[in-house]
Simulated scan of single mutants.
Amino acid sequence: MKRNQFLLTLLSAGVVSLTSFIFPNQHRNDDTPYLTKTYSGNISAVRAETSGGSLTVEGGTDRNAKIEMYVRANNSNDKLDKAELEDRLKDYDITIAQEGSTLVATARRRSNTNDWKHALSISFKFYTPRNLTTDLRTSGGSIHLSALNGKQRFRTSGGSLHLTDVEGDINGQTSGGSIHLDRCRKDIDLQTSGGSIHASASSGNMRLHTSGGSIELNNLKGDIDAQTSGGSVRGSDIEGEIKAGTSGGSVRLANVAGSVDASTSAGSVEVSIARLGEYVRLNTSVGSIRVKMPLNKGLDLNLSGNRVDVGTLSNFSGSVEKDHVRGKLNGGGIAVNISASNGSVYLNQ
Rank of each mutant, 00 (worst) to 15 (best):
residue 133 T to K: 13
residue 140 G to M: 07
residue 144 H to P: 02
residue 140 G to W: 08
residue 140 G to K: 05
residue 153 R to E: 14
residue 127 Y to L: 11
residue 141 G to P: 09
residue 120 L to K: 05
residue 147 A to Y: 14
residue 161 L to S: 05
residue 119 A to S: 15
residue 121 S to M: 13
residue 117 K to M: 07
residue 138 T to N: 05
residue 114 N to Y: 10
residue 154 F to Y: 13
residue 119 A to F: 05
residue 114 N to R: 14
residue 129 P to A: 02
residue 123 S to I: 03
residue 115 D to W: 03
residue 154 F to Q: 05
residue 137 R to G: 02
residue 117 K to S: 14
residue 153 R to G: 08
residue 163 L to A: 05
residue 148 L to Q: 06
residue 116 W to V: 13
residue 126 F to P: 13
residue 118 H to F: 01
residue 128 T to D: 03
residue 136 L to Q: 04
residue 161 L to P: 07
residue 131 N to E: 09
residue 162 H to R: 13
residue 165 D to C: 05
residue 116 W to G: 04
residue 115 D to P: 01
residue 146 S to E: 15
residue 157 S to W: 08
residue 148 L to E: 10
residue 113 T to P: 03
residue 152 Q to I: 03
residue 149 N to P: 00
residue 159 G to R: 07
residue 160 S to D: 11
residue 121 S to E: 11
residue 143 I to V: 13
residue 151 K to I: 03
residue 114 N to V: 05
residue 131 N to R: 11
residue 153 R to M: 12
residue 116 W to Y: 14
residue 148 L to N: 01
residue 123 S to Q: 11
residue 161 L to V: 08
residue 133 T to C: 01
residue 162 H to Q: 12
residue 142 S to A: 15
residue 134 T to K: 09
residue 136 L to P: 12
residue 126 F to Y: 10
residue 136 L to C: 04
residue 157 S to R: 08
residue 156 T to I: 09
residue 123 S to G: 11
residue 153 R to Q: 14
residue 126 F to Q: 09
residue 156 T to D: 10
residue 130 R to F: 00
residue 144 H to F: 14
residue 165 D to Y: 12
residue 161 L to H: 02
residue 119 A to Y: 11
residue 150 G to N: 03
residue 141 G to C: 06
residue 124 F to L: 12
residue 117 K to P: 00
residue 124 F to W: 06
residue 118 H to E: 13
residue 155 R to S: 11
residue 146 S to Q: 15
residue 117 K to H: 10
residue 129 P to W: 00
residue 163 L to C: 04
residue 135 D to F: 07
residue 122 I to F: 02
residue 118 H to K: 14
residue 153 R to D: 15
residue 125 K to F: 05
residue 160 S to V: 01
residue 139 S to C: 06
residue 164 T to N: 15
residue 161 L to E: 07
residue 145 L to I: 03
residue 145 L to W: 12
residue 118 H to I: 00
residue 161 L to R: 07
residue 132 L to A: 01
residue 133 T to N: 14
residue 139 S to A: 13
residue 134 T to D: 10
residue 154 F to N: 07
residue 130 R to I: 04
residue 141 G to W: 09
residue 152 Q to K: 09
residue 131 N to P: 00
residue 149 N to G: 00
residue 115 D to C: 04
residue 134 T to A: 07
residue 154 F to K: 05
residue 157 S to Y: 10
residue 147 A to W: 06
residue 116 W to M: 09
residue 152 Q to G: 02
residue 127 Y to K: 10
residue 132 L to K: 02
residue 126 F to M: 09
residue 153 R to S: 13
residue 116 W to C: 01
residue 150 G to T: 01
residue 134 T to Q: 05
residue 127 Y to S: 12
residue 126 F to W: 04
residue 124 F to S: 10
residue 157 S to L: 13
residue 162 H to P: 04
residue 164 T to M: 11
residue 120 L to E: 06
residue 165 D to S: 15
residue 128 T to A: 08
residue 125 K to R: 15
residue 157 S to I: 03
residue 153 R to P: 00
residue 127 Y to W: 07
residue 123 S to D: 06
residue 131 N to D: 04
residue 152 Q to H: 05
residue 120 L to I: 02
residue 123 S to K: 11
residue 165 D to E: 15
residue 156 T to L: 10
residue 162 H to A: 04
residue 143 I to H: 12
residue 139 S to H: 09
residue 150 G to Q: 09
residue 164 T to I: 12
